[in-house]
Amino acid sequence: MTTTSTRLGELVDRFGGQLIGSPDITVIGIAPLSDADHHSITFLSNSKLRHQASSTRAAALILTESDYAQVSQDYAGACIIAPNPYVYFARAAQYFASLVAIPPALGIHPTAWVSPHAVVAATASIGPHVSIDAEAVVGEDVVIKAGTVIGRGVSIGDNTLLHGNVSVYDHCIIGAQCIIHSGAVIGADGFGFANERGQWIKIPQTGRVVIGDRVEIGANTSIDRGALADTVIENGVILDNQIQIGHNCHIGENTAMAGCVGVAGSAKIGKNCTFGGAAMVLGHLTIVDNVHISSASMVSRSILEPGQYTGFYPLAKNADWEKSAAIVRNLSGLREKIRQLEKTIKTLTEKSS
Rank of each mutant, 00 (worst) to 15 (best):
G77V: 10
A82V: 15
I327C: 08
T347M: 11
S66K: 14
Q18L: 13
V130S: 01
M298Y: 06
S47W: 05
T2F: 09
S34K: 14
K268T: 01
V149G: 03
Q177V: 00
Q52C: 07
T26A: 09
G265N: 12
T148M: 06
S182Y: 09
S40A: 15
S40E: 07
Q244S: 10
R14P: 03
Q244W: 05
H292E: 07
L228E: 10
T344E: 13
A60T: 02
I41N: 04
P116W: 08
L33P: 01
S302W: 03
A278W: 00
E342R: 09
I180M: 01
Q308H: 15
V120P: 05
L162E: 02
I150C: 07
I28E: 08
I156H: 02
I243S: 07
T310R: 06
S353C: 04
R225H: 02
G192W: 10
Y86E: 04
A121L: 02
A90T: 14
N195W: 15
I243F: 13
G198I: 14
S324Y: 09
R197E: 15
S34W: 06
Q308M: 14
L8C: 08
A326M: 06
S55Q: 03
F193R: 05
A227T: 15
N46D: 15
H250I: 09
I293G: 06
L239K: 03
G259T: 13
T221Y: 01
A76S: 12
P110C: 04
T231E: 05
I28K: 06
T56G: 08
T255L: 12
N235R: 03
A316W: 02
H250W: 12
A264M: 07
G246N: 04
V209W: 07
A76K: 08
T206C: 08
T344I: 15
D35I: 05
G153Q: 06
S332M: 07
D74I: 12
T231Q: 10
S72D: 00
A267S: 09
I156G: 03
S45Q: 09
E216R: 03
R339V: 13
A101R: 14
D224I: 05
E350H: 07
L315D: 04
V87S: 04
I303C: 03
G262H: 06
R208Q: 06
A69V: 14
S55F: 00
D289Q: 13
L11G: 11
I338P: 05
I126F: 13
G246M: 07
I180R: 00
T231V: 03
T4M: 02
T347V: 14
Y68K: 08
L228T: 11
I80W: 02
A176P: 00
L331T: 03
